[in-house]
Amino acid sequence: MSEIDPTSLDSLVDIVVPPPAGWWPLAPGWLLVLLAIGLAGLVRLAILLRDWRRNAYRRDALRELDRIAGSDGRTTWTKVPELLKRTALAAWPRADVAGLSGTAWVEFLNHTGRTPGFGGNIGERLLALSYEPGAVERFSTTDFQQVVEASRDWIRHHARPEAAPC
């Protein structure tokens, strides 16, 4: 009888490797992580939807401003100050905005905008469009475009009050 040599390489057997662990079903910890990510995504979506709804007045005002700026006649130029007032009334309480006129109105626009865009000549042109019937005849197209650009910037970037109605 032949004796088997324990040190012989002929008696080696291949190692059986188990299959890799699958990704599914996930461990309970991963399920909690996925649930937290999903909830955070839903909260973010709700915030984006709320902000989108709250800024509907801005989108409407910008569309109307584009319509006014793109019109051929100078008679529509006088609608820019009215549009700014209506936009402000949509964001602030009526008691805070409705009574403002003249330089107080321009100061309000400069204070609540990202930059004081209605300073100097642009503020004077805005007031002239508001209160002087023949002002549009004095303005060039460039003058009007400066008022439109300042108005567009204010509509896009004005700081709403914290307690503004939604």
Rank of each mutant, 00 (worst) to 15 (best):
W77V: 01
G120E: 02
Y57I: 12
L32N: 11
A46E: 01
G29K: 08
L39P: 00
E107L: 10
S140V: 01
L62W: 06
I47A: 09
A104S: 11
R67T: 15
L45D: 04
L89C: 05
V33I: 13
H111N: 15
G102T: 04
Q145G: 02
P161K: 03
D14F: 10
V33K: 07
A56P: 00
Y57G: 09
V136S: 11
I4P: 11
P165W: 11
M1R: 15
P81G: 02
P165N: 10
D60A: 15
G38P: 01
S140Y: 01
L35Y: 01
R50A: 15
L89V: 04
S140R: 03
R54G: 03
L65G: 07
S8H: 09
W154G: 03
F144G: 00
W52C: 05
A27E: 14
R53I: 09
V136W: 03
V148C: 06
P20T: 02
R59T: 10
T142F: 05
A21F: 07
L127T: 03
V148Y: 04
A21G: 09
V13F: 13
L32P: 00
A95P: 00
E132V: 15
N121G: 14
V43A: 12
P93Q: 07
W30A: 14
R44V: 10
P93G: 06
D153M: 09
E82F: 15
Q146A: 11
T103I: 15
D153R: 11
A56K: 13
I122G: 00
P133T: 09
L12P: 02
S140M: 04
D5T: 07
I15S: 12
P28T: 09
G117D: 08
S71L: 11
S130G: 06
K79Y: 11
E82P: 00
W30E: 13
P161L: 07
